[in-house]
């Protein structure tokens, strides 16, 4: 029971971007993934990337309204990593035989479908922001991501006053929204 509570606390921590929780997840499970990837044609860097993706998938899973974790975090992370690594190998045309693995895993196909939609929405916003160019990108990131005030942003970017910065932010925001909605389809 105690272990279960700990797992719940970890997931809650991950959802709240608590670095202690993230650290615990890395410390408890990364070695397992490292071995799995390296035993299946991958490198340490591949393991790092796959684990990172799996952490994000777990984070997205926790965010879902229908969230229930029916197995241990360990099993879930491993299952996602296995799924992702298999996909990666297939993309590289390297996959030929069943993967060698000693851990038990569950089917994550259903979850991955939902998570991939989240990935897609994230990618659209990321692309839109990145194609804005500077200073628009940093200005909007400062305001919407880092929650900085207009006054602070004005002095950071060298605008003479907050109104000018606000004006610029407005123009940037219009461009971003245009870029974003050009690709984002409601309801899909």
């Amino acid at each position: 029971m105690k272990a279960e509570l700990n797992e719940q606390a970890l997931l809650k921590g991950l959802a709240q971007n608590d670095s202690k929780a993230v650290e615990t997840l890395y410390k408890s499970h990364f070695t397992m993934i490292q071995h799995f990837v390296e035993n299946n044609n991958g490198s340490f860097d591949d393991a790092r990337d796959i684990f990172q993706e799996a952490m994000i998938a777990l984070y997205e899973k926790v965010q879902l309204d229908s969230f229930v974790l029916t197995c241990q975090i360990k099993t879930y992370l491993f299952s996602i990593c296995k799924h992702l690594w298999l996909k990666r190998l297939q993309q590289m045309g390297k996959y030929s035989s069943p993967l060698s693995a000693h851990e038990e895993s569950i089917s994550v196909e259903m979850d991955m479908g939902q998570i991939e939609k989240k990935d897609a929405a994230f990618a659209i916003m990321d692309r839109a922001l990145n194609s804005l160019g500077e200073p628009c990108k940093s200005l909007l990131e400062g305001y919407y991501l880092n929650k900085k005030g207009m006054q602070e942003l004005a002095s950071q970017f060298g605008y003479t006053n907050a109104d000018n910065a606000k004006n610029q932010k407005y123009k940037c925001l219009m461009r971003l929204k245009k870029l974003f909605f050009a690709q984002y389809n409601i309801g899909d």
């Binding site: 670095s19 650290e23 990172q52 952490m55 994000i56 997205e60 965010q63 929405a121 990321d126 991501l145």
Partner: peptide, 17 residues
């Protein structure tokens, strides 16, 4: 908002690693 939250998690994860 969703983007910002996830971006922060990515950042934390990379940093911790």
């Amino acid at each position: 908002g969703t983007y910002a939250k996830r971006k922060n998690v990515v950042h934390t994860s990379q940093h911790v690693f």
